[in-house]
């Protein structure tokens, strides 16, 4: 069973609907026992970094997710959920993240003249072949964000160009993150969710 971490994130229900459509069973929960017992965790997220991390901490979820992921449980962070996998963010102050992948979350540079937020379909460039996610090469997925991740290239599977290189799908061992919204990215997005689910259950 996959667990979608329930902490009132904006896209939670749409993520659940996407898995329902794929007929992949998921439970929406904040219950520590269910999170401990599940095959894989999905961390959704929309909104600001600081308040979202604060909510995870208040509910005792931050340490639990971190502990489970470090013990080898598959984890998929989506959008803000992906950004929270990293060490810290400068969105309205300086906030610590889960620190599961080295890197930081920063604002788009103002000098590029690109409109912020980045809102729309951008193209994935495959930076490293991971076989399971090679289908994303040159595919467009849906992005909505004002901050982006800066991290070592070795964690970036696909990236999109928005004046800067925007990590689109990141991976460190069994920990995955998508800056785009797979639940809003049509057939290719659904395939991302399906691929993660297969890996989690096969593990």
């Amino acid at each position: 069973m996959l667990v979608i971490i329930d902490y009132d994130a904006g896209n939670t229900y749409n993520v659940k609907k996407a898995f329902d459509y794929l007929k992949i069973p998921t439970t929406l929960t904040a219950d520590p026992q269910q999170i401990k017992n599940c095959d894989g965790m999905i961390l959704p997220g929309v909104g600001a970094f600081g308040p979202a991390m604060a909510t995870l901490q208040e509910r005792g979820l931050a340490n639990l997710i971190k502990h489970e992921a470090l013990a080898g449980k598959p984890l998929l962070g989506i959008c803000l959920g992906m950004q929270m996998l990293f060490e810290n963010s400068t969105e309205y102050g300086n906030h610590a993240g889960l620190g599961l992948i080295p890197g930081k979350v920063v604002a788009f540079p103002t000098e590029t003249n690109y409109r912020v937020p980045q809102m729309g379909w951008n193209q994935n460039q495959l930076l490293q072949s991971k076989k399971d996610f090679d289908f994303l090469a040159n595919e467009y997925t849906y992005f909505v964000h004002s901050y982006y991740v800066k991290c070592d290239l070795k964690y970036i599977v696909t990236a999109a160009d928005y004046g800067v290189q925007v990590p689109a799908l990141v991976r460190r061992q069994q920990i995955y993150g998508t800056q785009f919204h797979p639940e809003k990215s049509g057939a290719v997005g659904l395939r991302v969710l399906q691929t993660f689910a297969q890996k989690a259950v096969a593990k």
Binding site: K17, K184, S185
Partner: peptide, 8 residues
């Protein structure tokens, strides 16, 4: 709509 259509 959002149960079967996966776009914004």
């Amino acid at each position: 709509v959002s149960r079967q259509v996966f776009m914004p």
